[in-house]
Design a protein around this nucleic acid. Sequence first.
RNA 1: GCGCGCAUAGCUCAGCUGGUUAGAGCGUUCGCAUGACAUGCGAAAGGCCCCAGGUUCAAAUCCUGGUGCGCGUACCA
Length: 727
Amino acid sequence: MSSEQQNTTNIPPIFLKPYEPSEHEARLYKMWEESGFFNPDICIEKGITKADAETFSIVMPPPNANGSLHAGHALFVTVQDIMIRYARMQGKRTLWIPGADHAGFETQIVYEKKLEKEGRSRFQMTSEELYAEIMQFTLANKDFMLGQIRELGASCDWSRLLFTLDPRVIDIVYKTFKQMEEDKLVYRGARIVNWCPKHQTSLSNLETKSVERKDPFYYFQYGPFVIGTARPETKFGDKYVVVHPDDTRYAEFTHGQQIELEWINGPITATVIKDEASDPDMGSGAMTITPWHSGVDFEIAKRHNLDYEQVIDWKGKLLPIAEEFTGMNIMEARAKIVEKLEAKGLLVKIDSEYMHSVPCCFKCEREIEPQIRDQWFVTTKPLAEKALGAVADKKVTFVTEAQERVFKHWLENIEDWNISRQIVWGIPIPAKICTKCGHGMVDLEDTITECTKCAGQVEKDPDTFDTWFSSGQWPLATTNYPDSQDFADYYPTSVMETGKDIIFFWVSRMIMFGLYRTGEVPFKSVYLHGMVLDKQGKKMSKSKGNVIAPSEIQSKYGTDALRMGLIVNNAPGTDMNLDPDKINANKKFANKLWNITRFVLDATADLPSGATLTEEDQANIATILTVNTTEITKYMNTDRFDLASEKIYHFVWDYFASELIEASKPLLASNDTAVRASRQALLAEYLVTSVKLLHPFMPFVTEAIWQELPKTMKDQDILMVAPWPTN
RNA sequence: GCGCGCAUAGCUCAGCUGGUUAGAGCGUUCGCAUGACAUGCGAAAGGCCCCAGGUUCAAAUCCUGGUGCGCGUACCA
């Protein structure tokens, strides 16, 4: 193209160089935000949306306000923004409520690591000091992170932003807690909990992870029995030996029989217990139990009303019951105990090939020490049953059936949920604890002064809630349950879109709490996306150095390219490998669209108004444009954004650009003005439709183009609220 | 151990309510400055659709078994 020819066209100068995302994204987001159209109330006010239009709502999973956004965040923002932009263009009353999560334990750990680096420790601070510092840290991160969500193009309603420590949230959580006490769905009791000796707090089952390991498995002579164990250090308190009632090897022993025997620190009296929990096929079929430090043993002890004795302290060191081993770290003690038992001739054999998996703290990977501790628990069975009922009744559906099966399996096998945490960063448990009998009483008004059970002294519960106890009520908080208009209009929300890794942590709890408080499910469908992995399919982690930061991708390739890269070829529920080459391919696609626009605007500069289409061009629209629009819409309606985006990509590139534009060149040069005008109108139609279809996926480049289109081509000033193409 | 899932082109993955020559992106090879675009255009190569059985006129697609991998969950006797 010569420079003279450039000057004779009316191509807006913006198109005379390649699409440069950084020149447009910030100004376009500002324009959207200032338009007010993220807020459905304003859309109605300005006549964009009908007041009685169908609603579409999503509650955003509030990102943890303790760092910057990772690729997983970028994925969920993208998927939800696609849903939201599509719904808005369809004319629905569309609401997306953003939030930010204080993220309890997670954030406290991030902050503790920071303290460690500074040579400080939370154990040298008062709770108030620590809380204040973490609050400051979290609020700073929150603003930073919300800025990054804006940069991803999220068209959420910022006027409804909610933080998980907002008084409104706490109020709902407290009322739920109180109501659950009345309904006997929470209780405080001494039960086995997952104790992390490093973090000095109990954890829910979900907050532990199994680590596969090979450990020596020891067989010891225990009076007339041979018992097996991988944990000799817990055996000081063992004075019960359990065998299966039907195990003929032990038929001579009776339940309750007492036996004198030589043990680690001298002679002891052991009692024989017959219980079906003992597996005859495992080892010798005889086992000793440590009720204070094992869930299974705890249950056996409970059944037979046996004694409990703590052997290991909260820091993971042996207590005085261990006599000469007192104060030793368990790993150090293990070897010494084995040595001693061997010297006493009580070591039978060692199996060095024993594989088992050990529950570890999901954050620090230190071995969990099961401990008995007075904690608050939720009785989950009745709540789970209601949730299962709602799934069975299709009140809530899952985007892939496989996810529904996983979900049901978990609910069917659910156990009581430990909801108290010994950390400061969280919502305090509003309760009084009896110093004498340990009884717990929910006390919202701070009025309880003595134990309702034993009239003993009470003190304030020092613990905080498991974050998921409050997060589970997030749909209620964000819609301002119970008396708000938002709750009436938008609850249950249309879809819960989140990562499949938190299906149990979060999705299940929201369904249980939603049903419990309101009688209705909190959302009608659950769309679970997979994990974003690196190019080779490995989990991204800082230590591996394979983390792809969204912000870096955005500055290199543009936000639209990142969004497309995250969506195309990523079927719902499956993990995806994020490959920068793929993002680069979509950067090129944005530029392609840019150049298509340049061509079409140039070719249609003298487009007469009201040009009629030739028969050929009418047929083209009917057989190609309409068909593609219909198919893409069908994919959108079934949440197959991976297929919809791929289809648009090929439609725009392979058909519109490669075929239609090429075929149009001779027609545009035609002397037949009717043919020429018809083709001009056809190209304009294709451009407008393409840009609309692409907008949910690539909001920035499409809006940038839209803003340059002549008014005659547009049915709205802002593409974000333009109507979705229909037939 | 139990549950869920995956196995298709060099790589990453679609397709799988069974039906013409199995698709895409990236990559590779060859050729092109073609008046929108070299962030481009045109072409090409590349696949016992994991294995073995079965159902069927017909199987990548459904069933059974096996192998390999991933995830979840239990068990520390």
